[in-house]
């Protein structure tokens, strides 16, 4: 027994494995046993990378033909499990696709899901996972009490990715079975928002703006500063919901988790749901006119001041260099 057979739900973007996939594979490898990757889509392009990070086997469903990943991915996984490869643990990233697949699979297997985890440890025949709650103030450790396959979803950036020394993973076809009514939803068009500069969750510097900017036009200050520092602009949910900036810029519990070397928060109060997304940054600078704003509790450098005064001067000073 023990945890001998681990699957990682693996994702691809623009022909490369996502960082979250590599983080989970690295962690899976360290738990021992054999590791397989499961790609809901065509896994061939990333099979060699997945192998390098520890996947001896790469299950690939092939193109989804417009199906949403939730129903299709769960049904494909269930079919492989019914076929005899029974994992002790399946690791998912806590993101759109991961969440949708693990949810449907949990019903098919009648197994609970532990979500939002940042750590995992083998505990005899079971596992212990750790989840930060209340904006990361407390850490809750939970074990699975039933039988595997154990299902767990992890926040991105929980583990440091590192390649191993194995070769390319063997690609094994895992076709999506007939989905019946659950396969009713079909993608009819895909829209990609243009972005320039580094990706928000990979940038070394993130400059994020919040409601304290006052109006959507002021977000230009955030963008200029990000550009000057070769970083990425980010946002609190307040201004995403207000329609000032696209959702892809949101940092926090329901947005991206970022861990840059510098995070600059301009006009952001520091709500717990925002902080879980940026607390792991190496250095935090906050500009807020309210000295009592919670963001100052995590700031290495806090400026109590007006963003409309501090930001333009900062931008000017940096432009002059």
């Amino acid at each position: 027994m023990g945890i001998d057979n681990i699957w990682v739900f693996a994702q691809e973007t623009n022909g490369a494995a996502t960082p979250a996939t590599l983080e989970l594979l690295t962690k899976a490898r360290s738990l021992g046993g054999t590791v397989s990757a499961f790609v809901v889509g065509d896994g061939n392009a990333i099979a060699s990378t997945l192998g390098e990070y520890g996947a001896a086997k790469v299950y690939s469903t092939g193109d989804l033909a417009g199906n949403l990943p939730g129903a299709a991915g769960a049904a494909a996984m269930k079919a492989v499990i019914d076929g005899g490869d029974r994992p002790d643990l399946i690791m998912f990233p806590q993101n759109y696709e991961g969440r949708d697949i693990v949810s449907r699979l949990s019903v098919k297997l009648d197994r609970t899901v532990l979500t939002n985890n940042t750590q995992v440890e083998v505990d005899g025949d079971s596992l212990k996972v750790t989840t930060p709650v209340f904006g990361g103030e407390q850490l809750v450790t939970t074990t699975f009490t039933g039988e595997g396959p154990f299902l767990a979803a992890f926040r991105p950036k929980s583990f440091e990715p590192a390649p191993g020394d194995a070769g390319a993973g063997e690609v094994v076809s895992a076709p999506v079975p007939d989905l019946g009514a659950t396969g009713g939803a079909k993608v009819t068009a895909v829209h990609v928002e243009e972005t320039t500069g580094p990706k928000l969750d990979e940038a070394a510097v993130v400059v994020a703006g919040g409601r304290g900017l006052g109006q959507s036009e002021s977000f230009e200050m955030v963008e200029s500063l990000a550009k000057l520092l070769k970083g990425a602009p980010g946002a609190s949910r307040a201004i995403v919901d207000a329609g000032w900036v696209p959702y892809s810029m949101q940092v926090g519990q329901t947005g991206k988790v970022v861990k840059p070397s510098v995070y600059i928060a301009a006009g952001i109060s520091g709500a717990t749901q925002h902080m879980v997304g940026m607390k792991g940054s190496k250095n935090i600078i906050a500009i807020n006119k309210d000295a009592e704003a919670p963001i100052f509790g995590v700031a290495d450098l806090g400026i109590v001041g007006d963003v409309h005064k501090v930001m333009p001067k900062l931008i000017e000073a940096l432009q002059g260099r």
Binding site: T112, L114, G136, E137, Q138, T141, T142, T143, F144, L301
Partner: peptide
Amino acid sequence: DQQIVDVAQAPAREAGEII
């Protein structure tokens, strides 16, 4: 099929300089 076994205080970030 899950049981909470431990609740701990997360390590706090050290306060920085506020000006």
